[in-house]
Measured scan of single mutants.
Amino acid sequence: MTEYKLVVVGAGGVGKSALTIQLIQNHFVDEYDPTIEDSYRKQVVIDGETCLLDILDTAGQEEYSAMRDQYMRTGEGFLCVFAINNTKSFEDIHHYREQIKRVKDSEDVPMVLVGNKCDLPSRTVDTKQAQDLARSYGIPFIETSAKTRQGVDDAFYTLVREIRKHKEKMSKDGKKKKKKSKTKCVIM
């Protein structure tokens, strides 16, 4: 069974824990209790493949930012979460993405942009803004509501699919490099 290491990042209060708990335990946590770091595991079937999701729910508070490099190193894919009623959390996505790329030393890291709290009427981040940002990053965008469960499975499952595509691409690139290195030079 394939294991996928997913990391949920975003500013404090955007609903990272609520999304994760909704996926794992099928219930909505409405009281806000700032996370330092929590880890969850769940076995699911995605596109006919049974897999184990190892999900790291991270601290959004700035005082825990020193811990970010460590979990970013171990993560295979990242859910970059903002709240649709919090423009600052949307603007912060850029910083999370840049930090992930720096730590992973790669421009090509599996990510999904997630606009959470889409059940709320007080939207300050337009869907088109988020779609445009995701398009500019070359990553999928999904709106979710941890409260109603809308888009929750889709967000995590899409990230797994992005990781699969990335692994497939990397193995193809690896095979191309191996083929090239088999060419021999004969000096007579």
Score class of each variant (00 low, 15 high):
26 N>W: 06
94 H>L: 14
19 L>S: 15
90 F>N: 14
125 V>D: 11
44 V>W: 05
62 E>C: 04
69 D>G: 05
5 K>S: 02
123 R>N: 13
70 Q>P: 02
63 E>M: 01
106 S>Y: 11
120 L>D: 14
58 T>S: 13
173 D>V: 05
158 T>P: 07
13 G>P: 01
123 R>Y: 10
22 Q>C: 04
115 G>W: 08
113 L>G: 01
36 I>Q: 00
24 I>S: 03
123 R>W: 05
146 A>L: 14
50 T>N: 07
35 T>D: 04
12 G>D: 10
95 H>G: 10
71 Y>M: 12
134 A>M: 05
115 G>Y: 12
92 D>W: 14
55 I>L: 05
160 V>A: 03
69 D>S: 04
94 H>S: 15
115 G>I: 11
163 I>V: 04
26 N>L: 03
142 I>T: 03
118 C>D: 10
145 S>D: 12
122 S>H: 11
158 T>Q: 07
73 R>N: 12
157 Y>F: 09
116 N>Y: 00
132 D>L: 04
100 I>G: 06
81 V>W: 01
158 T>G: 07
65 S>W: 02
68 R>E: 02
38 D>E: 03
111 M>N: 00
75 G>L: 04
68 R>L: 02
95 H>S: 13
81 V>S: 11
97 R>D: 06
9 V>Q: 10
57 D>T: 00
57 D>R: 00
84 I>A: 14
152 V>Q: 06
127 T>I: 10
164 R>T: 14
32 Y>N: 02
60 G>T: 15
80 C>P: 01
47 D>L: 02
98 E>P: 03
14 V>C: 08
56 L>D: 06
114 V>K: 00
104 K>T: 15
136 S>E: 13
52 L>Y: 02
37 E>C: 05
139 I>W: 04
25 Q>D: 04
103 V>H: 13
134 A>Y: 04
3 E>F: 01
175 K>G: 13
21 I>E: 00
142 I>S: 10
135 R>L: 10
153 D>W: 07
13 G>W: 03
19 L>A: 10
131 Q>S: 10
39 S>K: 00
117 K>L: 15
90 F>A: 14
138 G>I: 01
45 V>R: 11
43 Q>P: 07
11 A>C: 12
138 G>C: 04
166 H>M: 10
136 S>W: 03
133 L>A: 04
112 V>W: 04
154 D>R: 08
91 E>R: 10
48 G>I: 02
185 C>Q: 12
187 I>D: 09
6 L>D: 03
81 V>A: 11
78 F>H: 04
145 S>A: 14
17 S>F: 00
178 K>H: 09
89 S>E: 14
67 M>R: 03
120 L>A: 11
40 Y>G: 00
56 L>A: 12
35 T>I: 15
162 E>I: 11
86 N>C: 11
182 K>S: 06
70 Q>D: 11
113 L>H: 05
20 T>C: 03
175 K>R: 08
141 F>Y: 13
138 G>V: 02
133 L>K: 04
84 I>M: 15
27 H>T: 09
135 R>F: 06
117 K>E: 13
99 Q>S: 05
76 E>V: 15
57 D>F: 00
56 L>G: 05
82 F>A: 14
95 H>Q: 11
184 K>S: 07
16 K>M: 15
20 T>P: 02
129 Q>E: 11
180 K>Y: 04
135 R>K: 12
3 E>V: 04
39 S>Y: 06
40 Y>S: 02
47 D>P: 03
120 L>K: 13
135 R>G: 08
3 E>C: 05
153 D>T: 08
131 Q>L: 06
106 S>K: 12
18 A>S: 14
153 D>R: 07
130 A>E: 08
12 G>V: 01
144 T>Q: 13
116 N>V: 14
164 R>W: 10
100 I>E: 00
51 C>Q: 07
12 G>A: 01
168 E>I: 11
173 D>M: 03
100 I>Q: 00
53 L>P: 14
76 E>I: 15
22 Q>F: 06
169 K>A: 10
44 V>A: 06
92 D>V: 03
127 T>N: 09
78 F>T: 03
48 G>T: 05
40 Y>A: 00
69 D>E: 14
143 E>K: 03
90 F>R: 15
93 I>P: 02
36 I>V: 06
88 K>F: 15
86 N>K: 09
169 K>F: 15
109 V>W: 10
6 L>I: 11
